[in-house]
């Protein structure tokens, strides 16, 4: 009896194996793609789309470096695109397979470094700002100084991202957020340490839920995430501090070793179909820089100054650039901030 059972189980083993049909593996930020589009794509191309999520560019990079080959499409921010391209981790794109590139909004190209779209196509652009609960928090003049306000101690969060936190402190002091001047970085460290005393934690992911459930009252956050929160709790508001902030463009790229590069091209093209781009923007509340899509956007999104960035804001803000070897300076400052009591 036991032997039969055992043999039966052993026979199951190969069945549990690793058979595959046509699957597009994508590695993306969470809540960053309208699921209806995935379903539509699956039907149109008769394939399966499997999505995994990362929470920071560094985590994406570390995973790919660590041998997580097999992703067909990834969504790094543009500074990470430069690093990966330099490291030979990305395939050159075949523009013939992506006719919708003609719709790309040229005015946002300055947010990326890969302006010829050799390795990447812009997916979404957004800003880092402050999400807060209207009615519980006074925000007359939006400023990073809010994190020094003890009134909200223990109910605020900063992003768990060294460049964003140190960058906010640098901006607050009036410096560039890509500085490599150690005196400026030291000053920024002091500011960030003072902020740290008032925050509940460094948090890049849960702040959206935290704002919705009133766990947090003030959060440094990404524009679209905060606005997704508004759909569940209408007291949430989003502002960009007067000192300026960081802007970013998340791009689509195909890693070397992709198993379905052709399907990945098709997916890029599909996401830049004007109607699809618009429905995606409506869903994620970031802006897909696709000129032809703007007319399909919902009124609400069209009028939102946080989706369509104000030129004045853009003028004061910067894009985070990778600093190569100088990056170590930021790691050091970040260690110091994290260890400070």
């Amino acid at each position: 009896m036991i032997r039969k059972w055992f043999i039966a189980l052993c026979c199951l083993l190969p069945l549990t194996g690793f058979a595959q049909d046509k699957v597009l593996h994508i590695y993306n930020w969470s809540e960053y793609l309208n699921p209806d589009l995935i379903t539509a794509f699956e039907e149109q191309y008769d394939c399966r789309v499997k999505q995994d999520y990362f929470d920071s560019n560094e985590a994406l990079y570390a995973k790919l470096k660590a041998g997580a080959g097999g992703y067909d499409l990834i969504f790094p921010s543009s500074y990470m695109v430069s690093i990966m391209a330099e490291q030979g981790m990305l395939q050159e794109l075949n523009h013939d397979l992506i006719p919708n590139l003609k719709h790309i909004d040229r005015s946002f190209l300055k947010l990326t470094e890969d302006r010829d779209m050799k390795y990447s196509v812009q997916y979404m652009v957004g800003s880092t700002g402050i999400g807060y609960i209207d009615g519980r928090v006074e925000m007359d003049e939006p400023s990073w100084a809010i994190f020094a306000n003890e009134e909200y101690a223990g109910r605020m969060t900063l992003l768990n991202d060294m460049r964003e936190v140190i960058g906010a402190a640098l901006k607050y002091l009036g410096y560039s957020l890509n500085t490599t001047d150690e005196a400026q970085l030291d000053e920024a460290a002091e500011v960030a340490i003072a902020w740290k005393k008032n925050i509940a934690k460094y948090e890049s992911e849960q702040y959206k839920n935290g704002l919705v459930s009133l766990e947090f009252l003030v959060s440094q956050g990404y524009s679209g995430d905060v606005m997704q929160g508004m759909e569940e709790n209408e007291d949430i508001a989003y502002v960009i501090p007067k000192e300026g902030t960081s802007l970013y463009s998340d791009d689509m790229a195909i890693p070397v070793g992709a198993e379905n590069a052709e399907l990945a091209h098709a997916f890029i093209n599909f996401l830049h179909e004007p109607e699809n781009a618009a429905s995606n923007t409506d869903f994620v509340w970031y802006l897909c820089p696709n000129t032809a899509s703007y007319e399909f956007l919902s009124e609400e999104v069209k009028e939102d100054p946080a989706v369509f960035l104000d030129p004045e804001v853009v003028a004061k803000s910067e894009v985070i650039r990778d600093l190569g070897e100088e990056n170590a300076k930021y790691v050091k400052v970040w260690d110091r901030i994290k260890a400070a009591q």
């Binding site: 593996h25 590695y27 969470s30 809540e31 995994d52 041998g67 997580a68 097999g70 959206k208 839920n209």
Partner: peptide
């Protein structure tokens, strides 16, 4: 040690704790 398309239930739960609806 997880790779492409190999999200397991605990990893899914972890990601839901962080992003999902409680």
């Amino acid at each position: 040690v997880a790779g492409p398309g190999s999200t397991t239930l605990p990893i899914q739960i972890y990601s839901m704790i962080k992003h999902g609806s409680p």
